[in-house]
Design a binder for these strands. Structure first.
Lengths: 106, 106
DNA sequence: TTGACATGCAGGTATTTACCTGCATATTAT
DNA sequence: ATAATATGCAGGTAAATACCTGCATGTCAA
């Protein structure tokens, strides 16, 4: 998993919209996705290229069409690497912050 | 939660390193963090500003020092909004993809 | 109170990003 | 074969990003 590519891919509203669109209906063509985007098809392609580079979307050519599918694995890995670690320390960290802030008053 | 700010903040190795440093030892000063970064202090400040804007880090002034604390809440919200949704559909989506690919061969 | 220390603020630059337009290619349908 | 359709490829531009340097401000300690 390339955390950089995954987070950068997710750090754009157009690309998150694309993932949401594919969540609603998987396997859509480029044209179908573009209907919901309000930008030139070529621009959408560039966004999709980044999603593919982050391995968040896989594509399959069918004739002249390109079908797009979500790959949830990198998001799962992001969760394992980043979220769980923070979750585990969540209460501890909040406790530290509270103590530090209280220390300020004394 | 501003997904854009959170993901953009996470989409940079220096900022993820900062979060890891704070995970190791919460409440570090700017100077302490900079010792581990290999860039000008002013550059590190700009990264920290983005982490603060994304609400991933909170700071407290103590005398001439600035202490930094992790806030795990936005990561939790990112998880709720983005990861769980995809996890839920994980097997279904892989099944869809498998079927689509098999359909290609026929 | 003066010097050392920790941080803030103001710019400047090179790279990356997010768009676009124009044209080329490949596939399907008539 | 030809026209319509779906996508690919090659550039060009404006804005955002990630660095930097230089100087200002505020705090502590001798």
């Amino acid at each position: 998993m390339d955390a950089d590519k995954v987070f950068k891919a997710l750090g754009d509203p157009t690309r998150r919209r694309l993932l949401d669109l594919l969540c609603e209906k998987n396997g859509q063509t480029l044209g179908q996705l573009c209907e919901n985007l309000d930008m030139a098809r070529q621009s959408a392609t560039q966004h999709i290229d980044l999603l593919e580079a982050a391995n968040l979307v896989s594509t399959v050519k069918r004739g002249r069409e390109k079908l797009h599918f979500i790959n949830p694995v990198p998001l799962h890995e992001v969760y394992e690497r980043w979220v769980r670690k923070f979750e585990r320390q969540r209460l501890i960290l909040l406790h530290d912050l509270k103590q530090e802030l209280e220390g300020e008053d004394q």
